[in-house]
Design a binder for these strands. Sequence first.
DNA 1: GTCAGAAGTGAGGGTGAATATCACTTTCAC
DNA 2: GTGAAAGTGATATTCACCCTCACTTCTGAC
Lengths: 136, 136
Amino acid sequence: MQDTSRRRPALPKNYQLIYEIVERSGIGRHLTSSDIYAKALKRRPGIGFSTVYRGLERLRDLGMVSELHVPGTDAAAYEPAGPRHAHFRCRKCGEIEDVPYAIPPRTLRTLALEHGFAIDEERVTFEGRCASCRPS
Amino acid sequence: MQDTSRRRPALPKNYQLIYEIVERSGIGRHLTSSDIYAKALKRRPGIGFSTVYRGLERLRDLGMVSELHVPGTDAAAYEPAGPRHAHFRCRKCGEIEDVPYAIPPRTLRTLALEHGFAIDEERVTFEGRCASCRPS
DNA sequence: GTCAGAAGTGAGGGTGAATATCACTTTCAC
DNA sequence: GTGAAAGTGATATTCACCCTCACTTCTGAC
């Protein structure tokens, strides 16, 4: 048990700012930490890179933003947490699109049961050619 | 048009060695490039890191090995190409397990049709607690 | 065989994301 | 106000990955 009456840290202002930036970018925008840092710098000059990193880490742990690691890109991308969905990355233009697909809960449950593990999160990424880059 | 009759390069010996190492490790072993380099060094002293990297890249492009980018790990992992499957990563012990699951082809086809893109590859990763680390 | 061009090789360095450290500042409960 | 905990920004470090370059090896033509 924890004494929650005493420790009730509100989200620090800087972290709120970071969340706001990610949140306003909208689902599907996939900002990198540098993008976010650049935007944060405009609204709060002097803010440090470390703070942005730490903020994103916190927000991720709180489940408020999702961290994306898409193969073929070097930096992690962030988007506001939302309904589960998959991502598609075009091998030609590098564009990342959201795909409204999630593995059915029943399937997840079955897999978890069969293997004895507990699934907290699923990540689905597709690769290929997007509509514009596809040979017609 | 290319003159394919003239260029028919066999897989260089070093690349064969690298493939052998990955292949013998077996599906589900998930070696990093450093692991592979260490093993290669034993069998071919003096081999360079660059060669191992290049070899893995080549083998990946040839579809002979699969490259894995699991969130939560820093380095890419390699395994011999085989039947499509998903991966599970334990958040506590970091262990990576293979999971015999693939998104049904029909679903892929539908998604591709709906969005107008062509899917070459799918990557599915689960995160959670493995059987040993799970609170019983 | 030998010759030329292509491909492969190893060393070393560069890049950039991510993380650690540290001294300083702010916040908050009391 | 006060003290402890949390947050902050600068800086340094680490590490995977990639690039370049000079050298060697391979291969096919003759």
